[in-house]
Write a protein that binds this DNA or RNA. Sequence first.
DNA 1: AAAAGTCCTTGATATAAATCAAATGATTAG
DNA 2: CTAATCATTTGATTTATATCAAGGACTTTT
Lengths: 223, 223
Amino acid sequence: MPVGLEVDDMKKLDEVVATRRQVKQGQMLFSNGDAFTSLYAIRTGFFKTCIANEDGREQVTGFQMAGEIIGLDGIVTDQHSCNAVALEDAEVCVMPFSNVEELSREFPVLQRHVHKVMSREIVRENGMMMMLGNMRAEERLAAFLLNLVQRLHARGFSQSEMILRMTREEIGSYLGLKLETISRTFSKLSDDGIIEVKQRYVKILAPDELKKIFNPQSCQTCI
Amino acid sequence: MPVGLEVDDMKKLDEVVATRRQVKQGQMLFSNGDAFTSLYAIRTGFFKTCIANEDGREQVTGFQMAGEIIGLDGIVTDQHSCNAVALEDAEVCVMPFSNVEELSREFPVLQRHVHKVMSREIVRENGMMMMLGNMRAEERLAAFLLNLVQRLHARGFSQSEMILRMTREEIGSYLGLKLETISRTFSKLSDDGIIEVKQRYVKILAPDELKKIFNPQSCQTCI
DNA sequence: AAAAGTCCTTGATATAAATCAAATGATTAG
DNA sequence: CTAATCATTTGATTTATATCAAGGACTTTT
């Protein structure tokens, strides 16, 4: 994944991702309390990570798709502190963390890459704190849809259409809202002609309007 | 900071933290957009990190005290994405990140330490998402106070008393609440005899009651 | 094809926290 | 020492979202 490596070096790096693992829809890649041994690079499929309170309340902490890394939560205590659930059949590369660390010492470019992956996750979660602490339901959903479609587009999919892999309840949990609020907000955006929604299918009809909801200042067409 | 090093190794590590920097109360150690060059280990003082929306809304993303590391947000883009503001006169060790990376390659124990620091921050932010997404005002403030006093106690301070370094507004921003709600919740906890509050001074009178509010299940004395 | 189970939508009502407002208490500047 | 500013508390009211409830749509099972 990191660039700037020689062919021979690449072979060494391949060792780190030698083994793969299939995860069926609904199954867990790892769960809270599991011993931490490896990071996982998602090859195909779609995951959610979530944590649960003692009194049963659940918080989805992220949705991850192909090319993204999960498992970073386990490093600090050598135990995972969240559950990683496949929302569709998935395949991951298992990257034993001791290998990752060993090769990071050998290849500065890999080391830098690992650091960036972790920093990116910290910055993402900072943004989530802003969402959860300051934004209204419509803003949260707009930001969520824009982020999702942008990540899908970066993987070669449409920049306006998508099939959601998660339920309204899971979106709600991620955004700190109840499923009814998610549903109502979808309906509102649909009534306003900004998106088209049919169950899990979402089409963004007016991306600039959506951006304006998320962030009134930064809209391209309304300056 | 990491353990398991020889004396000679320690000297090398000292190089990484050779320079120090004073930050006066109210001043910024770094701010959004600044080039990222270094991590900072807080020697003395107290910081907040915060991000600001384009439309002026501010989210405090963390409070940091002696022994903690700030600046990890800058790694991913080589630019800082938040502001770090000293809430009291502070001194930090400047750790040029290139040195940190270089020495990490040489000393696996340091490498592991850096990874744990980053993972800890990810896990902390996961917990904040749970707070902001699922908990009521009283639970958030209880969790906040317990966390703060626990960190202070780990540094040799009282396990029941503390002087807050931040305003009600900053606590509110961190917890996704308005300052009036923080004030009312302080008053409620005080009326219930769980804490004593006099402006910035807080004394925890009934720690188990506070834990029960934060997490009804995990209380020691109520099983 | 019918039944059962999810998931989703929508309406009516309740509620926690926000907002607006004013007074009080602390801290800083002159 | 006094004025001025800033931080905090408290009350009254509003509001966004949660909760409760019911029906509808889609999916899976039999």
